[in-house]
């Protein structure tokens, strides 16, 4: 051990690795397999005001160099999360950050208000990549003023710090990050999956039921590095990097680009033991460069 620590929201961690929303559930399955070692925090699947069944299958399709997903924020709704899931999550050996999604600006605050009844969450991650139903389905993250309003609404409701998870698909990431900071966010997550689609040119068939999905891949790492770098130049709040991590080197690269902590998502599906594998790799690499 090098004794290295990383910090977020006044808490020290012996690993920079956070499990990204959507790929770790609420952490129970990984806990059962003994794979939360090396994990600083788990970010839950998106929680919405009402239960959501999610999109019809197929929800995922692998392409030559990545994965497209269209799960559709399947979750049991915030009431079930607060009454049934979070009490169990108090058994997790690591902090839980609850990811929050909404269909209207007010809905984010309503979900957070319910989550405030639970002592379990360490903080929240606000997913502004979802479509704003009252604005015709454009993502909340497309407009900095919307991001700022959502952040302010959440901030007024929450006693806990929160990160705003920005979208790479619409708007300017630095303007959105500044808006989140202005609205009171305690961090920004940079960023979410990239809008993608695949089509079978022979048949014209589009495998995903919803046609488009979120694209993720280790090959996207430089896109995240760039966005983390420019965001860190623009804001003072911590930046949580998310996108393309599959190796300890990737974690260190994102930290070098300015990230405070680094999320792993798609690679966790491949390697459920990513927490310890990445943390141990990071510590070894750091020891090599500073003997």
């Amino acid at each position: 051990m090098t004794g290295r620590t990383w910090s977020l929201w006044n808490r020290e961690f012996d690993s920079p690795v956070i499990l990204a929303s959507g790929t770790a559930g609420f952490g129970f399955e990984l806990m059962d397999m003994g794979y939360l070692d090396g994990v600083a925090a788990v970010i839950s699947k998106a929680t919405t005001l009402r239960p959501r069944k999610g999109n019809p299958p197929p929800r995922i399709v692998e392409t030559r160099f990545g994965l497209l997903n269209s799960v559709g924020l399947a979750n049991p709704g915030v009431e079930e999360v607060v009454t049934r899931i979070l009490p169990e999550a108090s058994a997790l050996p690591v902090p839980l950050i609850v990811n929050v999604a909404g269909e209207t600006e007010q809905e984010f605050a309503s979900v957070v208000e319910m989550l405030e009844k639970s002592p379990v969450p360490f903080g929240y991650e606000i997913n502004v990549s979802c479509p704003n139903v009252s604005e015709g389905g454009v993502a909340f993250g497309a407009s900095p003023s919307t991001v700022e309003r959502v952040s302010r609404l959440v901030g007024q409701t929450s006693s806990r710090p929160f990160s705003v998870k920005l979208t790479p698909n619409e708007g300017s990431i630095t303007e959105s990050a500044l808006a989140a900071q202005e609205g009171g966010a305690g961090a920004v997550t940079v960023c979410n999956t990239f809008l993608g689609m695949t089509v079978d040119w022979r048949t014209g068939m589009i495998p995903l039921e919803r046609k488009v999905g979120g694209y993720s891949s280790p090959a996207l790492l430089p896109l995240t590095v760039a966005r983390v770098h420019i965001t860190c130049q623009a804001v003072d709040i911590p930046v949580l990097a998310s996108g393309g991590v599959s190796r300890p080197e990737d974690v260190l690269e994102l930290l070098a680009a300015g990230a405070s902590m680094v999320q792993v998502g798609t690679w966790l599906m491949r390697r459920p033991g990513s927490g310890a594998e990445l943390r141990d790799g990071v510590l070894e690499l750091l020891e090599d460069v500073s003997p």
Partner: peptide, 17 residues
């Protein structure tokens, strides 16, 4: 059977009606 992501219950990629 279904197209599977994680295989351990987290990602909800392999849904069946």
């Amino acid at each position: 059977e279904a197209r599977m992501g994680c295989g351990w219950g987290a990602c909800e990629g392999c849904s069946i009606p």
